[in-house]
């Protein structure tokens, strides 16, 4: 036993010394000393993380919009790809009072004034709107893309997303909305014909209708000028996190040089084809 452990121990010590003496080139002036672990950036996302935000539930790969956004922000802050650690949190872990286990957390968090009382958000990294998905072959599939005809459908949504407050405030469907834990459950419910239509943010709606939901059909997107849309996504941080200014700076520069536009083009489906819903009321 001893003889087998010894070489392991030696190599571990050697590796540790190497790491300790390696030059710290991670972290630029702004972010130095402000991260959870020095010279490393810890980024959190959902468990599981859904496409198109994170492909194959593997944020480390850099594949998927939010994974790519995280790495782009990290790079602007002076962290190369190997200096980024990923952790998973639920929504609840992200908002609990007390120490966080991440520097920032991204899983399509909408920036809302109520939430700002407990956590901080970065500048907006992506703006989207809400969209309606139905299933081919059901009566709802032929619904016109107008608010007055959509109101008659039975809606479902993932609880805790912006979909439910949006339905309540803007569309006001005639029947009570059913709510589910996550996208997978909403898809199960529409497959079982318990609901006619689902409201998602547009990229999720495009993905669900194309991939997750068999016979999924996107009826339309809500006009961005609407008072509840647009839905602004921000990186979630602990209240008063000193890193916020560095993150904001990075996001601004990524907007300015068009990096975010490129990432959108790479990872998010082209939404220009989705008809805009007529808000006649």
């Amino acid at each position: 036993m001893k003889s087998r452990l010894l070489p392991l121990l030696i190599s571990a010590v050697a590796a540790a010394t190497l790491l300790a003496t390696a030059p710290a080139f991670a972290a630029n002036e702004c972010s130095a000393g402000k991260t959870l672990n020095s010279d490393r950036l810890t980024v959190a996302t959902g468990n599981p993380a859904y496409p198109p935000w994170v492909m194959n539930d593997a944020p480390e790969s850099g594949e998927g919009f939010e994974s790519a956004v995280a790495f782009a922000v990290a790079e602007r802050m002076g962290f190369d790809k190997s200096s980024v650690d990923w952790v998973r949190t639920s929504f609840d872990e992200a908002i609990q009072p007390g120490e966080k286990n991440f520097d920032f957390n991204l899983q399509q968090y909408s920036i809302k004034p109520e939430r700002l009382e407990v956590v901080d958000f970065s500048e907006v990294y992506y703006t989207t709107t809400m969209a309606v998905v139905v299933r081919e072959g059901t009566a709802a599939a032929d619904t016109a893309a107008t608010a007055s005809s959509l109101k008659k459908l039975k809606f479902g949504a993932a609880a805790g997303t912006s979909s439910q407050p949006f339905l309540e405030k803007v569309l006001q469907p005639e029947q009570a909305t059913l709510l589910y834990d996550d996208n997978a459950d909403v898809v199960a419910a529409i497959t079982a014909n318990q609901i006619d239509a689902i409201v998602f943010d547009l990229p999720s709606a495009l993905f669900v209708s194309a991939v997750q939901l068999e016979g999924g059909k996107l009826i339309g997107q809500f006009p961005v000028e609407n008072n509840e849309a647009p839905d602004n996504f921000g990186l979630l941080m602990a209240k008063g996190n000193p890193l916020k200014e560095c993150v904001d700076e990075a996001i601004k520069s990524l907007h300015e040089d068009g990096t975010f536009k490129d990432l959108e083009a790479t990872w998010l489906a082209d939404a220009t084809g989705a008809p805009v819903i007529d808000m006649d009321k």
Binding site: F91, I95, Q96, K112, E114, R115, V118, A159, G160, L179
Partner: peptide, 14 residues
């Protein structure tokens, strides 16, 4: 419980 869950997410408060 679901209604409480919705409010929790909306307000980021338990």
């Amino acid at each position: 419980l679901r209604q409480a869950n919705v409010y929790k997410s909306l307000m980021a408060n338990f």
